[in-house]
Design a protein around this nucleic acid. Structure first.
Lengths: 236, 236
DNA sequence: TCGGTGTTGTCAACAGCGTTGGCAGTTTTG
DNA sequence: CAAAACTGCCAACGCTGTTGACAACACCGA
C-alpha cells in the first residue's frame, strides 16, 4: 500500500504487525469516509478507492463489511474516551456520567453514519472494554449494589445509544425526508378538521418547539435520579 | 390483482378506491413477509412475488420503498392501538403508559424487521396520529404543564422506540452474530489478564444475567417517576 | 544463491438490490 | 365509438457485497 521507499529498514515489521497497520489505516479511512459522505458513501469499492487498493483486497483484512464496521465503531469509541480524558478524583459520579452521555451524543451528531449503523451492536474491541469499565466504575461509586449497578449501567448505556442512534439514523437520510420529519407536526395538524386530535392540537406550539437534545437530557436525568434514589434507599 | 369474478357489480369501486385497496393488500403482505422472513426478506421483487405481481407494479402504488415501509409501520401501529383497546376511565395514567410501552416492546420482539427499519422515523399516517393523541392525553392527565407534558411525551416515546429498536435490530442479524453478542461478556473477559478491567470482572455474574426487558422497564419507570415528581412539585 | 511456499493485490464475475422507461392491453371518459 | 388514462410486464441500468482464479512479490530453509 505504497508502504515502500523507507530507507531505514531498522526492525522491519513482521507480517502480523503489517496487517495490523493496514487494518488501522483502513479503519481510519473508513471513519473519515463515513463522516464525509454519509452512510451511503461507505462502500467497499469507495473505501478501496480512497486507499488506492482494490475492494477485494479489503477482504484480506476483514472477514466482511460487518467486521470492518465494528472496528470503525470501536475506533469512534476510542476517540470518545480520549475526549472524556481523565476523571477527576472528586468529580460527582453523576457529573462523570453526564459528560460521557454528552460525548456519545456528540459522536452521533458529528458522525451519524457510524452511530446509525452500530447503535445496537457490541464491537468487542478494546475501546469498548475500556468504556464499559469506566461507566461501571462510575456507577459503583454511587454506592449501588452490584446487581443495581449493572441494571443502571445497562439502562444508561442502552438509553443513551438508543436515543443517539435515532438522531444519527435520521441524519443519514435524505435532507428532503429530514425536512418533512421536522415539519410534520404543523404540516399534518394544520389541514385536519378542528374536532380531531384535540390534545395534540392544544400542544402544537410545544410540539414544534422541542429539540432532541433536551429530550435526551430528560431521559439521562431521569435514569440518574432513579439510580440516586435507589442508592439512598439502600443506605438506610 | 385477481380482483375480478365478482358477479354482483353493485357500486363498483372508483379508481381511487381500488388503489387504496391495493395499497392495503400490499402493506399487509409486506408486513407478513417482513415478519416471516426478516428484514432481508422484504425486497420489492419478493413482495411482488407474494402478490403475484411484477415488482415494478408496486411503484404505481408507492413512490419508493421508503414510502411502503412507512405504511407498513403505520399498519403495525394500528395493530398496537387495537391491542391496547379502550382506556378505562379510572386507570392510573402511569399504568396506561406502561401498557403502551409494553405493546411497543411486543411489536419490536414479534416483528423485528419492521421495528428495526422505522424506529427513528415518523410515519405521518393515521395510526401514528391516534397514538400521539393517546399518549399526550395520558400524560396530560397527570397534571403536568403543557411544556412538561410534551417534554415527557417525547422522552417516553423516543426512549421506548430507541430501546425497542435495539432489540429489533439485533434480532434481524444472523443468529450467529446474536449468539456472539449474548456471550460476549464471558467470552471476552474470561481470557484476559486478571489485573485488567477489575470492575467489569467483579460484576461478571450480573452482567451475563441481565435481560433486556428488565432494562427497558427500568428506563420507562425512571421516566414515569420523573414525570410524577415534576407534576407533584408544580402542585404546591 | 536458489527454489519452494505462502502472502498480497488485481481482475472479472456472480447474484441480488432499488429503480426506470417503453410497450402492450385494458378500462374509463368525453 | 374514439381518445385518453391507467395497469401490468419486461428488460435494463447502475449499484451493492462477496468470491475465485491468477500473477507478482516476499520470505524461508537448503
Amino acid at each position: 500500500m505504497a508502504q515502500d521507499s523507507a530507507p531505514a529498514k531498522a526492525a522491519r515489521p513482521s507480517r502480523r504487525e503489517r496487517k495490523g497497520v493496514q487494518q488501522e489505516a483502513a479503519v481510519a479511512a473508513a471513519f473519515e469516509l463515513a463522516r464525509r459522505e454519509g452512510v451511503g458513501g461507505l462502500t467497499m469499492r469507495r473505501l478501496g478507492e480512497a486507499l488506492n487498493v482494490d475492494a477485494s483486497t479489503l477482504y484480506r483484512l476483514f472477514r466482511d463489511k460487518d467486521e470492518l464496521l465494528l472496528a470503525v465503531y470501536d475506533h469512534a469509541t476510542a476517540i470518545e474516551l480520549d475526549e472524556i480524558g481523565e476523571v477527576p478524583e472528586d468529580e460527582h459520579w453523576q457529573d462523570t456520567l453526564r459528560r460521557i452521555a454528552d460525548r456519545i451524543w456528540a459522536t452521533a451528531v458529528h458522525s451519524p453514519a457510524i452511530g446509525a449503523l452500530t447503535f445496537a451492536r457490541t464491537t468487542g474491541g478494546p475501546a469498548e472494554r475500556r468504556m464499559v469499565e469506566l461507566i461501571l466504575d462510575t456507577f459503583s461509586r454511587s454506592g449501588l449494589s452490584r446487581s443495581a449497578t449493572v441494571r443502571y449501567y445497562r439502562a444508561f448505556v442502552d438509553a443513551a445509544l438508543g436515543l443517539a442512534g435515532q438522531v444519527a439514523t435520521l441524519a443519514t437520510l435524505d435532507p428532503e425526508i429530514q425536512a418533512k420529519d421536522a415539519s410534520s407536526w404543523t404540516r399534518i395538524y394544520a389541514q385536519l378538521p378542528d374536532g380531531e386530535y384535540p390534545t395534540a392540537r392544544a400542544h402544537i406550539t410545544e410540539l414544534t418547539g422541542i429539540d432532541r437534545r433536551a429530550v435526551f437530557d430528560v431521559v439521562i436525568d431521569a435514569i440518574l435520579a432513579a439510580a440516586e434514589r435507589e442508592s439512598l434507599a439502600s443506605d438506610l
